[in-house]
């Protein structure tokens, strides 16, 4: 029973983490038709902002030394600024290009950022002791749940609710949904492209900051590729959920998280190392039967 609860908790925690990342990807894709590889680096750089830039594997803390509120706030500021910078400098000049060009350019931007971090921090993984107290297990109703999982679920839940509120109730959010549905139409109706896109990037920055903090608390390490795997999975989550659909992206994130944890739990031990390969294969298998994803939006269809 404990085991099953543990699995479910892990699944929900990972699912919500992936959902956050998928939403960021989906949001930016919705307003710009851009699949943003650089999202991985927003996460990575947010985490690396916690330490002093050195080549050491046990670096001193920078933002990480601040009390929690300031630390979190600091990371958010760093990542949002980074996201807006990449939007302004790299992606805005390419607006309107076809999705293939945008895809390749985000790949280049990601590569650039990755190697920038490597240049400053060296490529070796580093250990960071933040939020160690949270890894202790919390017990309720006779069930023990690791604190980090609770934190992840809690943070994700709060952010998802905030996103829903933002998209449905605020003027900017409504504009963003309109733009995601049909960008040309939204512009004709007065939606300011620059502002909407910048906001989308800023939000994806906030989510990236949250994810990076959660990852650091969960794993206690910094790695230049730490953002890569969640983002790659998030790409697929967006495709599974249905490109252009924000609920679809979140749903896709949960599905990928559940499948990953499920495989981890139920694969025979000698196959567990191949877990990620299986996840990808299942994703591709799913796309064979439903290439358009789970939730189809009108944005996905080309007008003839």
């Amino acid at each position: 029973m404990q085991n099953l609860i543990q699995i479910i908790v892990d699944a929900v925690a990972l699912g919500s983490l992936y959902a956050l990342v998928s939403l960021s990807i989906g949001l930016v894709f919705g307003v710009m038709r851009l699949i943003n590889f650089a999202q991985a680096d927003y996460i990575t750089i947010g985490a690396y902002a916690l330490v002093v830039p050195t080549a050491s594997v046990s670096p001193a803390l920078l933002l990480g030394a601040l009390p929690f509120a300031f630390m979190a706030g600091g990371v958010v500021v760093v990542v949002v600024v980074l996201a807006l910078l990449t939007e302004r400098l790299a992606f805005r000049p390419m607006r309107g290009s076809d999705p293939a060009t945008l895809l390749v350019s985000s790949f280049a931007v990601s590569y650039f950022l990755q190697h920038l971090v490597m240049l400053i921090h060296s490529g070796r993984p580093k250990s960071v002791g933040i939020g160690n107290s949270l890894s202790a297990a919390v017990e309720f109703w006779g069930i023990r749940v690791p604190g980090t999982q609770l934190l992840t679920m809690g943070v994700a839940l709060v952010m998802l609710v905030a996103m829903v509120f933002f998209l449905k109730k605020t003027p900017m959010g409504i504009q963003m949904r309109a733009a995601a549905e049909n960008f040309q139409m939204a512009r004709l109706m007065g939606v300011k492209a620059n502002r909407v896109i910048a906001t989308a990037f800023a939000i994806s920055g906030i989510m990236a900051a949250a994810v990076s903090l959660l990852l650091v608390v969960q794993t206690g390490t910094l790695d230049i590729r730490m953002g890569l795997m969640p983002v790659i999975f998030a790409f697929f989550a967006t495709v599974i959920g249905g490109m252009g659909s924000l609920p679809g992206a979140a749903l896709g994130g949960f599905i990928v998280g559940f499948v990953t944890v499920g495989l981890q739990a139920f694969l025979p031990p000698d196959l567990r190392a191949f877990r990620d390969a299986f996840v990808f294969m299942l994703v591709i298998g799913f796309l064979l039967f439903r290439p358009q994803g789970l939730i189809v939006t009108s944005a996905a269809r080309e007008r003839v």
């Binding site: 699949i35 293939a100 895809l103 790409f235 697929f236 490109m243 796309l287």
Partner: peptide
């Protein structure tokens, strides 16, 4: 798969 999905 369609273009973008195939790429990914």
């Amino acid at each position: 798969l369609g273009g973008l999905a195939a790429s990914i």
